[in-house]
Write a protein that binds this DNA or RNA. Structure first.
Lengths: 153, 153
DNA sequence: CTTCATAGTTAGGAAGCCTAAATGTTAGGG
DNA sequence: CCCTAACATTTAGGCTTCCTAACTATGAAG
């Protein structure tokens, strides 16, 4: 029955993934920066990152990253610079306004999340804490599988 | 320090939400039905559901549900019927082909997930099992907050 | 100095979600 | 019975985000 149990857990986990998307929408849906945009801003602190790295961190293709970065650049929150070591590459970095926007966005989202977490029992919080690293591991394992395609018309 | 700990957990939880989106893409991205479409098919068994209920289950507005259902109807996997008790409403139900497609899609996705879960330790699986219901609770709590809007140009 | 690989951008298109407005139905007062 | 307000859904139009393919420019290796 080990096998059946695992399949059962897998099903419930799949349900949780859907729920996570749902929760993300509720959490970030009405704010002026999208979840992805905040992620980009957050990762582009310090010396900045190259476009390819941003794409990889986000789990999207490079052109998708280019698009988001261009938008944030237009908004004055990021800037592109030539990479001094490789003229093909760009380094994307937060501007001062970007620093403020990132801090602000993260503060607000975290505050919302805290509001929700405050309503949970200590044991439930502990359950979350324990499960978080497992999620990372699952993500790693999936890096071995698959790539997007088309859906039904 | 209780407060700070909670904020910290909130941050890590936010990271996990992003990861869940990422994992969803990896898991379902190359299949012929989208995650949403499988959800709809799965929920429309038995006597079927009304459009509004489908939308609510998905966490989207009614027109978005209409669109998905129309697509699946065109593909022959769902059918619309008039609700005998309320001529304004429709009842959406799986066809026989829909039954097969739903079973098949769920089987394949679950199998993939099982492949990943098999690589985890028993304690890690237990951590997931324990955390799943907490996620549901978080979702409930969020039902009190917010609604989508526009992002930066 | 060619040739091939690499980094990024541009162009075009698909999916999925939204709001606003239109259509038809039900239900409650007068 | 009739009118108005609430409701269920669809249609139309638009935005975001992602993708692939093709193009530009630079780097690296023989």
């Amino acid at each position: 029955m080990k096998e059946k149990e695992l399949a059962d857990l897998a099903d419930r986990f799949r349900g949780m993934l859907r729920l996570a998307v749902f929760v993300s929408r509720r959490l970030d849906g009405d704010l002026e920066l999208s979840t992805t945009q905040v992620s980009i801003l957050t990762m582009c602190g310090g010396d900045g990152l190259r476009m390819g790295v941003i794409a990889e961190n986000l789990g999207v293709r490079v052109p998708s990253a280019t698009e988001q970065v261009s938008r944030l650049e237009r908004a004055g929150l990021l800037e592109r610079r030539a990479d001094p070591r490789d003229a093909r590459a760009v380094v994307v970095r937060r501007t001062d306004a970007g620093d403020r926007a990132a801090a602000d966005a993260n503060r607000r989202r975290t505050a919302r999340m805290v509001d929700v977490l405050e309503t949970l029992e200590p044991a439930e919080l502990e359950a979350l804490r324990t499960a978080l690293p497992v999620m990372d591991k699952i993500n790693e394992r999936l890096h071995t599988i698959s790539n997007p395609k088309e859906h039904i018309e």
